[in-house]
Amino acid sequence: MPAAVIVFPGSNCDRDMARAIELVTGRAPAMVWHGDTSLPDGTDFVALPGGFSYGDYLRSGAMAARSPVMGAVKAAAQRGVPVLGVCNGFQVLTEAGLLPGALMRNAGLNFVCRDVALDVENSQTIFTAGYAAGQRITIPVAHHDGNYFADADTLDRIEGEGRVAFRYAEVVNGSARGIAGLVSAGGNVLGMMPHPERAVEDAHSNRQGLALFESVLGVIA
């Protein structure tokens, strides 16, 4: 039962994502090209990596969200397969309509690339079960368009449904209500701007992203 990492032209965190998955599962995930129209049989986890898919043309994630492989990713998400989108992957998930809202230019207009403090808002999701509720963790961000926007009704709804998985514990990019990551209504799709795959081994500044991969990949193991 393989995991799959989707590779778009311009993805640049696909190999980091694959390494994080292999660290936890002991198996290299399938690397699936954006032009493919299906996922490998039995795919039980899909990751959309960070990067600058299609050069961020039109809007970040806009072209990738309409690429051939996304039909299969949407179908997998609808079947309940866990789907993780990090950074550009989060942007793709919102553009594809798998998560509500949009990611706009950072409020300060700067590309932000540093470790940031996050609070685990909901530790009951399949992605965050390895954390304690309210736990503060440090995960790197690296993005220009991470300023989460949704209208007030949508924000109230996703907050009320407990769908905010991670919230920034400091000022980072102007995100509405400090939202750093949120899950779908079904709980099996997580989009987040911070990069958990950059915090999984000793060479990184910390290993606090590992619990996310252990949580979601443990569910499917």
């Binding site: 039109l58 809007r59 806009a62 919102t94 509500p100 949009a102 706009m104 926007f149």
Partner: peptide, 9 residues
């Protein structure tokens, strides 16, 4: 609606 604009924003 399908591509040129993101009607969320």
């Amino acid at each position: 609606e399908q591509l040129l604009a993101n009607t969320v924003i």
